[in-house]
Design a protein around this nucleic acid. Structure first.
Lengths: 241, 241
DNA sequence: GGAAAAATGAGAGCGGCGCTCTTGCTATGG
DNA sequence: CCATAGCAAGAGCGCCGCTCTCATTTTTCC
């Protein structure tokens, strides 16, 4: 009975389906925004679904239509944090595009540090203790890799210029180094790959100690200290001055 | 039947006040032990005073006679964790007393790593995100310093043997390096001090990435990787093979 | 166009949490 | 021997995550 025309594209289709979907997207975004604000203000431990609901003017049970649990909400914030940090790092890399490898390496490291100091709670969320049981599914890995990949890219470029000067690997480490190189750093000489992974972790060791207060009354003038450490880190992956 | 005044040598009590005080000490210890068990099992986030009270057979409000708040309890566990880790590190250092500086350096680093892998939740408590507002008062600093001091000691010894080969410091870092040296590494040449502080943070960067799963699907064969990284770390503070 | 189905939001409620306050009791110490 | 200080228990406050039910919209499909 309904005309042939009516079946698919009924009059209000875009408005109809779109309206509902868009409302949902907007509310989801509002919830995330409120959650992000709470996270930045008070930290992950104090982030509560009920408070978020209050802030967006909902009753708490309604939020569960949008996020199945508090931890799922947190997971989304984790991914956002990784992306925010990754973007800061990539932007620093691109801004220093024409500089020397050492300058670009330093720029990326300092961007990561600045981001962490500006967003300590987000930093804690991604590089501190895993919050619940934990919640790092496959979804987060891509976002999590961005800083590391930015650094790998710089080392790769440096290698094209001057050859990297690196110590030979111990035999016990060679197979693993080759696997790692094949998996995520195909452009790099095999000797550089474990050094890269170590430098990646060590960079966040330096940043984490500063953000979490471990350097309190130990290292006070932290910027020159960090710069120096990062320069040595560059040397350890074969970037020469 | 409050017996005569002789009450307190009947049951083998050593001191008068000792009876009540000892009971208090025992209960305090029992509470801490239960808390430690919960921490190891479930992590700091799930540690609840009520659950601890249940485990020691008390009502929750009674626990507040012994610890003024959950965070105070956690703070004590933090100190214990620092001490446990510090003791593991010092023991490794002392066991390798007659070995080369590099071997001793490696022993301490590997002891720290092993402790962290064996006690991930305790590790998260002390090197992960600060838990509440946070709670690192003056009480914790001494315990927190033990691993760092063990490493400083090794570098100091190495310096007495062969001279350390270290790059000169940038001028901007020199004053801070001299202050740091005066404050907590008086036996070390000034060039080694920032390198030491950096190596300290970087060591826990490596360990933290492993404990918190950041190396998942990135570094798989982690022992040789760690050994290699730690050897390079030793080089960075001037310990030669 | 109208009925069936799906989505949404409110409300009440469950069990658990940290923490406080009051109430009896008992060991302690003048 | 009695006043007191320390202690355990209980009730209770306000918060939390999460579930379930119920009424009210849309949306979908015939």
């Amino acid at each position: 009975m309904c005309g042939a025309l009516g079946t698919w594209h009924t009059a209000g289709m875009t408005t109809a389906q779109g309206a509902r979907a868009r409302a949902r997207a907007e509310i989801t975004a509002a919830i995330k925004e409120a959650a992000r604000r709470q996270l930045a203000d008070e930290g992950a431990a104090k982030l509560s679904l009920r408070a978020v609901a209050r802030e967006v003017g909902m009753v708490s049970s309604a939020v569960y239509r949008y996020f199945p649990s508090r931890d799922e909400l947190l997971t989304e914030l984790i991914i956002d944090a990784y992306d925010s940090l990754g973007e800061a790092a990539e932007q620093a890399r691109d801004t220093a595009e024409d500089a020397t490898p050492l300058a670009r390496w330093t720029a990326v490291c300092e961007a990561a540090r600045s981001w962490a100091l500006a967003h300590p709670h987000e930093y804690a969320l991604i590089y501190g203790s895993p919050v619940p049981g934990y919640s790092a599914p496959q979804t987060t890995v891509r976002a999590a890799a961005r800083v590391g990949l930015a650094l790998i890219g710089i080392v790769g470029d440096a290698r094209e210029g001057t050859g990297l000067a690196l110590p030979t690997l111990p035999a016990e480490l060679r197979p693993e180094a080759e696997r790692m190189a094949a998996d995520f750093a195909p452009g790099l000489p095999v000797e550089a790959v474990p050094a890269m992974a170590a430098a990646w972790a060590q960079l966040f060791g330096l940043i984490g100690f500063e953000v979490f207060g471990q350097f309190h009354r130990v290292v006070e003038d932290r910027e020159p200290f960090f710069r120096h450490a990062v320069r040595e880190l560059a040397r350890s992956v074969g970037i020469e001055e």
